[in-house]
């Protein structure tokens, strides 16, 4: 175990002062018969140890594709990373030799998926699938690996772990399977955990259990957590910082309190206003007019302009630059000042 860590620490370009994970100018496109879908169009993200970064956005805006590109599990073809960097402690994974890249991803960056059932193999017991990781990546004996599997299931609070380790995925409830998925992801003690809608398929009471578990494990281990979600309630409950995505771009990034108190991008503002609120009962809900764009045909200038109430001529003509409006806040909107009301 220590040799892998030492090996990774000695990779050329490792910079102890660099962010744990940094995505720069990431572009991903899907080349299909219907044309080229530009799913990710210049995403910038940064994740620090012990931090929870929420990636928020509506369906199809490129959240999962961004995560897949980071993990190196993009569906290729039709998906291609056409530009950008994915840096782990300063080392660009996209330019690392295949063997090293695999080692980093297997050992340091892990992912939890929305649909636990399809991410687990139905024909093996969960214990076998967990133990397999220790045997493959840590060279443990069968017996030791199984022992570690039981410990992990215990850590994610599967009751009676010693017995349940021999059960198959379908024998667990939805919430339990998601715990098993988390155990799987944490097996090799990663520094970065990417959770893609980990609770979207679950009931609220179970969602609360899983989010608490994730937060607790993250604190114990000082992991960086990148939480992908479209649920503004979940974000408000667990995130330190938020990156809001629209049509394949991060349009606003800010600490959680700032963004809910005073969004700086017209889209973020419209999104927050569309949440049903008590004072709107008996009145129409606020909606964002129109639809998210087709990725084969992204509007010119600011991609949000056809739906935006602030939009003027310039929004159609020029992509807005990323304005740094505070040390930790960035918003790409021509009318940041109007949106902020300053």
């Amino acid at each position: 175990m220590t040799d892998i860590r030492a090996h990774l620490d000695a990779l050329p370009g490792v910079d102890p002062r660099a962010p744990l994970l940094e995505v720069r100018d990431l572009h991903v496109e899907f080349r299909t018969r219907d044309g080229v879908a530009r799913a990710v169009n210049g995403v910038d993200l940064r994740l620090n140890p012990g931090e929870t970064l929420a990636v928020l956005g509506e369906s199809g805006c490129g959240k999962s594709v961004t995560a897949q590109a980071i993990m190196g599990i993009l569906d290729t073809p039709p998906g291609h990373v056409t530009r950008g960097e994915v840096r782990y402690r300063g080392v660009d994974l996209l330019r690392l030799p295949e063997a090293d890249r695999r080692k980093v991803r297997a050992n340091r960056i892990a992912m939890v998926f929305q649909d636990a059932l399809s991410a687990l193999n139905p024909v093996y017991t969960v214990g076998f699938q967990l133990a397999e990781q220790f045997r493959m990546h840590r060279g443990m004996s069968r017996k030791d690996a199984k022992q570690r599997a039981v410990e992990l299931l215990d850590q994610v609070r599967i009751p009676d772990a010693r017995r349940r380790v021999d059960d198959y995925p379908h024998q667990f409830s939805g919430g339990m399977r998601q715990r098993v998925m988390i155990a799987m992801a944490l097996a090799l003690d990663p520094e970065v955990l990417i959770a893609d809608e980990p609770t979207t398929a679950l009931d609220v009471t179970v969602q609360a259990q899983i989010m608490n578990l994730l937060a607790e494990l993250q604190q114990q281990r000082g992991m960086g957590l990148m939480l992908i979600t479209h649920d503004m309630g979940v974000v408000a409950t667990v995130a330190d910082r938020i990156a809001v995505m629209y049509a394949g771009k991060v349009v606003e990034e800010a600490p959680v309190h700032d963004i809910y108190a005073r969004p700086a991008h017209a889209y973020t503002q419209a999104l927050l206003e569309s949440i049903p609120r008590l004072d709107l009962k008996g009145r129409p809900l606020n909606v964002i007019r129109g639809l998210p764009p087709a990725l084969t045909d992204i509007p010119s200038g600011c991609a949000f302009h056809p739906r935006c109430t602030y939009a003027r001529e310039i929004c159609r003509l020029e992509p807005p630059p990323a304005y740094r409006i505070a040390p930790q806040r960035i918003a790409s909107c021509h009318f940041v000042r109007e949106v902020l009301g300053v």
């Binding site: 609360a208 974000v235 408000a236 409950t237």
Partner: peptide, 14 residues
């Protein structure tokens, strides 16, 4: 319990 588990979109209540 159900109501208390619903995540509220207001970080000030955290």
């Amino acid at each position: 319990a159900l109501l208390s588990a619903v995540p509220v979109p207001d970080p000030r209540l955290r």
